[in-house]
Write a protein that binds this DNA or RNA. Structure first.
Length: 743
DNA sequence: TTAAGTTAAGTTTTT
DNA sequence: CTTAACTTAA
């Protein structure tokens, strides 16, 4: 028996309103997971609903795992038959059972982004598309967007009629889908779209799941896309016991197809919906909350709500702009070290958040230098590492020989003397005869063009057959060990004897232990099951929030987490909000999305929040100059401590050229006062027409004195100016640094 | 024909 | 600074 008395009135409403559609607008830190878990317990204990009839959907495995844990603790017996899982794994579970009705084998492979790209490259080659003009990425983006909107290749082609570019995309989409099917594979988007297809067109399956899932709950609803909405709608139609929990202010995945109207228009789809707002925040201090409120208030078209708290005002928000990203990172590392030394926080209390993964390197260096333990979330996924992908590909081929991509990846790894030409010939033969690559390899003798290469291919085919036997007779861990031994993969790395190779061996060991633990923990371990688990994990899933290390991650990864002491680094216009969003055609909308991201970042902090920025930072090998992020200015100034953003003499170089940038950003939502300031002090790069001197002119430099300009080179972002100084001699310098005056 | 070495180009956010 | 494409040597 659980006590529901610890819940506030709004939360209780969310728990007790079990029938019909319910929309819970849950602000950051308002205890939505508590509501969901109590709701499940209430359904089972008070309403007598069988656990078998309950489904809870989340976006990440981590969220699913946490919810599962809390439900298990509350419900006890029978809890394991509740479906608590992500959109993707729920879909896989349904597809593994019924995919044959869509013409797929139920042991289909799941392609990650890397696999999709490899396949797309191959398609572009076959269709003779110049990937210098039409990027693989742009095709994949178009296809993904279509799938998120449930647009089939046929429909896409119809809509594309008359448009040359879109017709080409349609052709690629069709081919891509055909190849996936031939490989018996689905990409991430297919998992959702194919499940929707299944439910839509197979009445038997639809009825089965509608009967099964009588109570459905969806977490992070603001991030659902059209396909996911349709999936939920199909499952819930009939009883309509659908409870969605979300916060439109935390919708940050539009770029991935999230449809914010799913939440904004929920009441239109379900006119009889009960709407509940959770506005009391139990996480942050009042100052942090007010800062977040101040920022998000600049967005239009949101559901009106204002978070409040009973917590004390707490520390002010620290803000400081540094001269360089180097100093910024240095400050953060020192500050963490100092706070830990004083006993205010542990390493595990601290998180450093940033907009782009690229910012982590500098921070990482500083943390290492200061001897601070840390963990980076994101960047290169464990399962995306070369050695791990190689070995997984062997397992994939053993599991599903139709997977041409996996075959191609390993056929010459380690080197067997089967080169691109031989593979190409086998692939052509397979393509011409409508078979899979591996089938073609099995009949290598029958392919005349292969010639002597046959003698190298046959042992490879035999090897795979051997692995298949091992898998069937001795299990997964033995299979992987046998793959490692028979291919000599680790042997080869050992021989390299480099730091890098040792790292790779460590990763392989980790993979091995993951296989072992999967085999022990899974109820019914299968090769497909393992590969599926591996395909659907995100880096964030492995994060232990109680760890004794500082966590570094992107703002996107941080959603749903909380830390006592948070650093938002890189608060610079052009970085956050990103340059892309500022110059976009739909700038207003994109800036709003960035602003929501900022809101997410601020509300991760429980007690202490520091915002930092740098005037100058190296990005992809070039020095960039940024002004202060507009989001910093949107925080009520009385909440801010540390240096304020009054212009300082040091800022002068930033004033040089702002014209180009200014025009591009329409700052409708920025307060007037801030706008005037921005106009004055908003430098990014020096424009050509801002150079007041030319070659041959006499100039004066602060340190070097007077001289003559010899040469000006356009260095892309900046100008490289060569000056022959009267005293100091010939110097090369960047225009933005030199601050040369014409005489 | 393969494999290693060199050069060039490209980087928002990700289940 | 990394990854992919190209070149050249074996």
């Amino acid at each position: 028996m659980n006590s529901y008395e610890t819940l506030n009135e709004q939360q209780k409403l969310g728990v007790f309103t079990t029938e019909g559609p319910v929309l819970i607008l849950a602000g950051a830190g308002s205890g939505k997971t508590r509501v969901l878990t109590h709701r499940v317990a209430y359904l089972i204990e008070e309403k007598g609903v069988a656990p078998y009839h309950i489904m809870a959907i989340t976006f990440t495995n981590k969220a699913a795992g946490e919810m599962r844990e809390r439900i298990n603790a509350m419900v006890g017996m029978g809890a394991e038959s509740i479906w608590v899982s992500t959109f993707h794994s729920s879909c896989v579970r349904m597809l593994r059972r019924f995919a044959d009705r869509l013409g797929y084998d139920t042991s289909f492979a799941i392609y990650d982004a890397d696999d999709s790209k490899t396949l797309m490259k191959d398609i572009c080659k076959r269709l003779e598309i110049d990937t210098k003009v039409y990027k693989e990425k742009s095709f994949l983006n178009a296809i993904s967007a279509a799938k998120n909107e449930l647009i089939s290749p046929e429909e896409f082609a119809l809509q594309a009629a008359g448009d040359f570019n879109k017709t080409r995309q349609a052709q690629v989409y069709r081919e891509y889908q055909a190849r996936l099917k031939a490989n018996n594979a689905m990409d991430f988007d297919d998992l959702i779209m194919k499940t929707v297809e299944l439910l839509k067109f197979d009445t038997e399956v639809r009825t089965f799941y509608q009967e099964k899932f009588q109570y459905i709950m969806v977490d992070e609803y603001q991030d659902t896309n059209t396909a996911q909405f349709e999936l939920v709608r199909l499952l819930a139609s009939g009883r309509e016991n659908l409870c969605v929990v979300g916060d439109d202010d935390q919708s940050i995945y539009k770029f991935r197809g999230a449809n914010i109207y799913n939440i904004l228009n929920f009441e239109k789809y379900f006119p009889n919906a009960t709407v509940i707002k959770l506005e009391q925040n139990y996480r942050s201090t009042e100052n942090i909350l007010n800062a977040a409120n101040g920022v998000i208030a600049n967005n239009t078209g949101r559901k009106e709500k204002r978070l409040w708290t009973e917590a004390p005002a707490g520390d002010k928000i620290f803000y400081q702009q540094f001269d360089s990203a180097y100093e910024e990172a240095d400050y953060i590392a020192r500050d963490i070290a100092a706070k830990v030394r004083r006993g205010e926080y542990t390493y595990g209390d601290c998180a450093i958040l940033y907009r782009t993964n690229g910012q982590s390197r500098l921070l990482e260096e500083k943390l290492i230098m200061s001897g601070i333990p840390y963990k980076i979330v994101g960047g290169v996924n464990f399962y995306a590492r070369r050695e791990v992908k190689d070995l997984l590909s062997y397992m994939k081929v053993v599991d599903n020989a139709q997977d041409d991509l996996a075959v191609q990846r390993i056929i010459n790894v380690p080197k067997r003397g089967i080169g691109a030409t031989s593979i190409g010939r086998a692939a052509d033969y397979a393509y011409a005869n409508g078979m899979n690559l591996f089938e073609a390899l099995e009949r290598a003798q029958e392919i005349p063009s292969l010639g002597r290469a046959v003698s190298k291919i046959t042992p490879f085919v035999d090897l795979i057959h051997h692995f298949r036997e091992v898998c069937a007779n001795r299990g997964l861990a033995c299979l992987l060990q046998e793959i490692i031994d028979a291919t000599g993969y680790v042997e080869e790395l050992k021989a390299e004897n480099t730091e890098e190779a040792r790292g790779r061996i460590d990763n392989i060991d980790e993979l091995l232990s993951k296989v072992v633990s999967y085999e022990q923990e899974a109820e019914e371990p299968t090769l497909s099951g393992f590969l599926e688990e591996v395909a659907l994990v995100a880096d964030i899933d492995s994060l232990d929030e109680d760890g004794s290390y500082v966590v570094l991650m992107t703002l996107h990864s941080a959603k749903g987490l909380e830390f006592a002491n948070v650093y938002l680094s890189g608060m610079e216009d052009g970085l956050f909000p990103s340059y892309m969003s500022i110059v976009s055609d739909h700038s207003d909308e994109e800036i709003e999305e960035e602003r929501r991201l900022c809101y997410v970042g601020i509300t991760r902090a429980r007690e202490h929040l520091a915002l930092t920025g740098a005037r100058m930072r190296m990005m992809r090998g070039e020095t960039q100059y940024h002004g202060i992020s507009r989001f910093v200015r949107e925080i009520p100034q009385e909440l801010i401590a540390g240096s304020t953003w009054e212009p300082k003499p040091k800022d002068s170089f930033a004033g040089a050229g702002s014209s180009g940038y200014q025009k591009m950003s329409s700052m409708k939502s920025t307060p007037l006062a801030a706008q005037t300031y921005q106009a004055k002090n908003f430098g990014t790069k020096i424009q050509k027409d801002t150079l007041v001197y030319g070659e041959g002119d006499r100039v004066r430099h602060v340190k070097f004195g007077e001289g003559t300009v010899v040469q000006i080179n356009d260095g892309g972002r900046d100008f490289e100016v060569t000056v022959e100084f009267d005293q100091a001699g010939r110097k090369k310098m960047f225009a933005s640094f030199a601050k040369l005056e014409k005489i």
